[in-house]
Simulated assay, not measured.
Amino acid sequence: MGSLVYWTMIIVLYQTILITVISYVTLSCQLKPERHELHELTLMKLLYLYDPQACSRIYFYNYTEVRDFKQVFSNIVWPLKNHVAASFRSKLKLWLSLHMFWTIFAFGNMIIVEQPCKFYTALLPFTATGAVMLVVDFIQATVFIKDSRYTRTEGELLMYISDVSAVNLTIMDKKYQTLQSSDDISWIALVMAYASSRGIVQWIINYWMIKDNFFEGLGLYRRFNARRALLNAPKTLDV
């Protein structure tokens, strides 16, 4: 039991540290698009990691349409608000909160191994929080997969994040209001879906870790109650 609890704490802690770092750099607007970075990284930031309204700074994006390997035109566009990035910020806050609770209960599960109150004060909350996280990961992954349907091209991505129906996208050259491109970039949302499910492998590890901790803790709790019942049983004297 001790070895399982120890490795559980290590696994939970490194995931919590990772999500804390990601949350900090995203929520503090450290991941703003840069001029000389990879084009794909800029698009990922525009889609999920940078909300101009939350960061109080508009980013101007140079949209260049290329057809048949020839440049058709360039235009400057800037989203005033990014509802996709705003939703992602909410997801990060939820993930961070769950990880914090998960770490606290994992630590409690580790330090009160032999105490009878462990099952209700640490193990059950740890198991419940972990189960909620597994469900949340799955739901968030499906949301990212849904996004991939609307972000197949660069033009579709820009229109999707800005919610054109709410007039959140501004285009400098009004003659070219339609943004068209042919390169498939739906993989960006699919990468986020893969990451949100913890690369699948980590998700499976978490599942077995939660399950093993619960059943081993339950077994220990039952053995403790059995010993306590035996000690408290009335003694009879042989005549």
Score class of each variant (00 low, 15 high):
residue 1 M to F: 11
residue 10 I to F: 09
residue 10 I to E: 08
residue 11 I to W: 10
residue 14 Y to I: 14
residue 15 Q to D: 09
residue 16 T to I: 05
residue 19 I to K: 03
residue 19 I to Q: 02
residue 20 T to W: 03
residue 20 T to R: 01
residue 24 Y to F: 14
residue 24 Y to M: 05
residue 24 Y to Q: 02
residue 32 K to I: 02
residue 46 L to E: 13
residue 47 L to Y: 02
residue 51 D to F: 00
residue 58 I to F: 02
residue 58 I to C: 03
residue 59 Y to I: 03
residue 62 N to W: 00
residue 69 F to L: 08
residue 75 N to M: 10
residue 81 K to A: 09
residue 87 S to H: 11
residue 88 F to G: 10
residue 94 L to K: 12
residue 94 L to N: 15
residue 95 W to P: 15
residue 98 L to I: 14
residue 99 H to Q: 14
residue 100 M to T: 14
residue 101 F to A: 11
residue 107 F to W: 11
residue 108 G to N: 13
residue 114 E to F: 09
residue 115 Q to D: 08
residue 116 P to Y: 12
residue 117 C to R: 11
residue 126 F to C: 07
residue 126 F to R: 08
residue 128 A to S: 04
residue 131 A to P: 00
residue 139 I to Q: 07
residue 139 I to H: 03
residue 142 T to V: 03
residue 142 T to C: 08
residue 143 V to M: 08
residue 143 V to W: 05
residue 149 R to I: 11
residue 150 Y to M: 05
residue 151 T to M: 07
residue 154 E to I: 01
residue 157 L to W: 04
residue 163 D to A: 15
residue 166 A to G: 06
residue 168 N to I: 02
residue 177 Q to M: 04
residue 178 T to Y: 06
residue 179 L to A: 00
residue 184 D to T: 07
residue 184 D to I: 15
residue 186 S to M: 11
residue 187 W to T: 04
residue 187 W to M: 11
residue 190 L to I: 13
residue 190 L to H: 03
residue 193 A to F: 04
residue 194 Y to W: 03
residue 200 I to L: 03
residue 201 V to Y: 09
residue 201 V to P: 03
residue 202 Q to S: 15
residue 204 I to V: 12
residue 209 M to L: 13
residue 213 N to Q: 15
residue 214 F to H: 06
residue 214 F to C: 09
residue 215 F to G: 09
residue 222 R to N: 14
residue 224 F to N: 15
residue 226 A to D: 12
residue 231 L to A: 14
residue 236 T to A: 02
residue 237 L to M: 10
